[in-house]
């Protein structure tokens, strides 16, 4: 039990080698499609957001409320230092490239749910100097290790979606009701949506998917052709945020 020095060195060496290998060989080419080229055996979790259903319930923020509650996300009450895992954004802000003046009013004037896209080629992971944020091999979730993060905010600069939040101050006084089962964060680290990795481990769906009164959020393994999310993506037109940047976002918006 416990990591001894030799084990540590082996791990350190292996990590360096894999990173080297990846860097030299190039990870996947930008914008490759996990459905076509990804091995079917590997899980790739993704989410589809039914904008049609979601906008039927204007002003609903159930997903934000439950997520921020169970994850002890503070309410700083100051837009500059705000911390958000999942929230609603104007269509134009979320999809600057898809927006135009003559767009249907119901799309243009409604807000859309945004969260970390759990990109398949995540720039935040690429830039992090400590591997505090990484893409999980087993299911593609982009994870955070708050124990290791040095708070350099390079990932904040690298994420094209504003998904990453920095703790400018101690968040604890700003958490109304602490959930004892989940840690809070400390000042000086970055945090973001983790696709409810802790719930998935218990066989539960992400809290937002569970709670959504409109059933507008569909979550599943996109590498499984029989999954609900694959079926729905097959039958409905979907868009993604800033796909041109080659990050291969895994949140699909059904229009």
């Amino acid at each position: 039990m416990g990591i001894d020095r030799r084990k540590f060195l082996t791990i350190a060496g292996l990590t360096t080698l894999t990173t080297l290998g990846k860097t030299v060989l190039g990870s996947s080419p930008a914008g490759h499609d996990p459905i076509e080229t990804g091995s079917q055996a590997v899980k790739r979790l993704a989410m589809a957001i039914d904008m049609q259903k979601c906008r039927q319930n204007e002003g609903c923020v159930e997903c934000t409320k439950i997520c921020h509650k169970i994850h002890n996300v503070p309410d700083i009450g100051n837009s500059k230092e705000e911390i958000k895992w999942i929230w609603k954004e104007n269509f134009e802000a979320a999809f600057p490239n898809q927006h135009h003046d003559l767009l249907e009013d119901e799309i243009k004037n409604n807000q859309v749910v945004v969260l970390c896209n759990h990109c398949d080629d995540p720039p935040c992971v690429k830039v992090c100097p400590t591997q505090s944020t990484w893409k999980r091999e087993s299911d593609g979730i982009v994870m955070m290790d708050m124990h290791r993060c040095i708070g350099c905010r390079y990932c904040v600069a690298g994420c094209p979606y504003g998904s990453r939040n920095f703790n400018f101050r101690d968040p604890r006084p700003f958490i109304k009701e602490t959930n004892p089962e989940y840690p809070t964060r400390t000042k000086g680290v970055v945090e973001k949506c983790n696709f409810c990795a802790e719930r998935l481990a218990d066989g539960l769906l992400p809290a937002c998917v569970d709670i959504c009164p409109e059933k507008a959020l569909i979550f599943g393994n996109i590498n499984d052709p029989k999954s609900e999310i694959r079926q729905i993506l097959k039958s409905r037109h979907s868009i993604r945020r800033k796909p041109i940047l080659g990050t291969n976002p895994q949140i699909y918006y059904l229009v």
């Binding site: 002890n72 604890r172 959930n179 004892p180 089962e181 840690p183 809070t184 400390t186």
Partner: peptide, 8 residues
């Protein structure tokens, strides 16, 4: 303890 919540 600055992150993990101690029991009441």
């Amino acid at each position: 303890w600055s992150c993990h919540v101690e029991p009441k």
